[in-house]
Every structure is written in structure tokens, then in C-alpha cells.
């Protein structure tokens, strides 16, 4: 009678309205993806559909024409691992240190970590080109050197994921408790803090992987080969295969983000249980 929904959220839309909005926008957004699938199933110029291209791609085992893609994928994975390592070894300890020992630097750290979001990758490339000229001279022009650049572009994402976990855990008390029990800093970090921040760190790592696997701008303009640049090359030769690979990559990224979402979910459940216990005590 007052337009309230069953769950009492007075401003939420009715079921019908929700279905209409989501259905409409959902269908429109599905079109390009459907078009990609349709495209890969086309059977030559004569019309009709079959799954030949998919079969061909998988049976070939990525040999021959597709070999460069496999190499590029290897590069991207290596870059993702390298970038995750940089984030884990540098960002996590810094954040913890700032959180526990230098809380006043928190604003500075936050600003630094969010800054890259305001600097377009294309601008970063302009700045990086001369830097990489030097890097190449010192360390060679291996693809892995890109991990340094990616370490910066992923900062905002990794920072946000870890920080939200950090906010939910009383790091200070945990640390103090462990210290009074006689643990040194190293042990506090490894045995107490990292296990408690596992979700945030894991989510951060997954996001880093997703971003690195999807990165194109920097690799392309610094003439390095990664998954995305290889896809562009393949698309010039064999657009069908490029689209198939894109679909697979999109599906993989979707699953990755779904896992990140699931990682976040149990956290709220545990904290709810914890408050309940407190309420009964």
C-alpha cells in the first residue's frame, strides 16, 4: 500500500521495474558478445554455422600459426607473476609498516598509490620510453622488465583491495598481542598479519593478474609482446582465431573476478557471526 518491497527497503524498485531495466540493458550488452560467438561459428563465405574453427584451434595445440600467441601468453603470465611479486614484496610490507608504525604517512601512501589512476597509461608510456631506453641498456630488453611499469599501473587496484581488508582487521591490537607474547617483527608479519590479511592480499593479487593480462597500451608502444599485442597481430592475419581467443580471455577474466567476489563474501559472514557471539555474552 505504500509501495514497500518485502524486504523493507522503501526506495528499492519493484520486481517488475528491476526486471525491465536489467533485462533491457542486459540484452543490449549481450549483443556484442553474441556477435563474437556468431562470428567464430560462421562457416566460410557460403553461410551456415559450424564449430570447425574452435576444433581446429584446440586440435592444433597452438602450434604453427598460433605459436606466437602461446609465446605471448607465456610472456603475459610471467609478467603477471612478476608484478604480483613486486606488489607482495614491496606494497604489502609498506602498507603494514605505515599502518602500524607511521599512521601519519597513511595519507601520503594513499595519495601515491591512487596517483597512477590519474595518469593515463599512454602518458606514462611517453615518460617510460626514455627510462626503458636506459633499462634496456642495463638489464637487456627482456619482456619481464615491463613488470616494473605494471607494478605502478596496478598500484591503485592492489592498494584498494588490501586496504579494505586492512580496515576490517584490527592490525594494531593483533600486533600488540603478538608482541606481548614475545614475537619479533618478522614473526608478527608472517604468522599473524599475513594470515589475517590473506583475503585482501589474494584479491589484490587476482586483480593484478587480471589487469596485467589485459594490458595493451604500454606493451604495444614499447614494442614488447604480450597477450593483447599478440591478439592484435593475430587479428590482422586470422580475425576468427583472434575473436575465439578474446572470448576465452574474457571468460577467464570473468571467472577470476568471480573468485575475487567470492573471496570477499565469507568475510562479512564471519564478522556477523562474531558480533552475534558478542551479543550473547
Amino acid at each position: 500500500m505504500t509501495g514497500l518491497t518485502a524486504n523493507g527497503v522503501a526506495h528499492a524498485p519493484s520486481r517488475t521495474v528491476r526486471t525491465i531495466i536489467l533485462g533491457l540493458i542486459g540484452v543490449i550488452f549481450a549483443v556484442p558478445i553474441v556477435a563474437m560467438i556468431e562470428f567464430t561459428l560462421r562457416a566460410g563465405l557460403v553461410g551456415g554455422y559450424n564449430v570447425d574453427r574452435w576444433v581446429a584451434l584446440f586440435q592444433s595445440g597452438f602450434t604453427g600459426v598460433y605459436r606466437p600467441v602461446l609465446v605471448a601468453l607465456g610472456n603475459s603470465v610471467a609478467l603477471a607473476v612478476g608484478t604480483v611479486l613486486i606488489v607482495l614484496l614491496l606494497l604489502v610490507p609498506t602498507m603494514l609498516l605505515v599502518h602500524i608504525r607511521f599512521p601519519r604517512l597513511r595519507r601520503v601512501l594513499e595519495f601515491t598509490c591512487i596517483l597512477p589512476i590519474t595518469i593515463p597509461a599512454i602518458v606514462l608510456v611517453v615518460g617510460l620510453a626514455p627510462v626503458y631506453a636506459i633499462v634496456a641498456r642495463m638489464l637487456g630488453s627482456g619482456v619481464w622488465t615491463l613488470a616494473f611499469a605494471y607494478g605502478i599501473t596496478v598500484l591503485p587496484f592492489a592498494y584498494r583491495a588490501i586496504q579494505s581488508n586492512l580496515d576490517g582487521v584490527d592490525v594494531k591490537t593483533l600486533t600488540e598481542a603478538a608482541r606481548t607474547l614475545g614475537a619479533g617483527w618478522g614473526r608478527v608479519l608472517l604468522w599473524v598479519l599475513v594470515p589475517n590479511l590473506r583475503r585482501g592480499i589474494l584479491a589484490g593479487a587476482f586483480i593484478v593478474v587480471a589487469v596485467v593480462l589485459g594490458e595493451f597500451t604500454i606493451a604495444s608502444l614499447l614494442n614488447r609482446v604480450n597477450l593483447q599485442t599478440a591478439l592484435v597481430v593475430v587479428s590482422k592475419v586470422d580475425p576468427y582465431t583472434a575473436v575465439i581467443l578474446s572470448l576465452l580471455a574474457l571468460a577467464f577474466a570473468f571467472l577470476l573476478l568471480l573468485v575475487i567476489g567470492r573471496l570477499g563474501a565469507p568475510r562479512t559472514r564471519t564478522s556477523r557471526r562474531r558480533t552475534n557471539v558478542k551479543g550473547q555474552a
Partner: peptide, 26 residues
């Protein structure tokens, strides 16, 4: 919500090159 959140994440941050292919196909 989790499905839409993940889909949004993919399209907003991962799409890039692949979105170009999608629109060529469309």
C-alpha cells in the same frame, strides 16, 4: 549482484583490445 559485479569488472578494466573485436563482429 556477484555476477554483474564480475561482468562489470571484466568489461571496465579488462576489455580493451577485445572490445574492439567485439564491435567489429557486431
Amino acid at each position: 549482484r556477484t555476477t554483474i559485479d564480475s561482468l562489470s569488472g571484466v568489461l571496465a578494466q579488462f576489455g580493451g583490445v577485445m572490445l574492439a573485436f567485439a564491435f567489429v563482429a557486431t
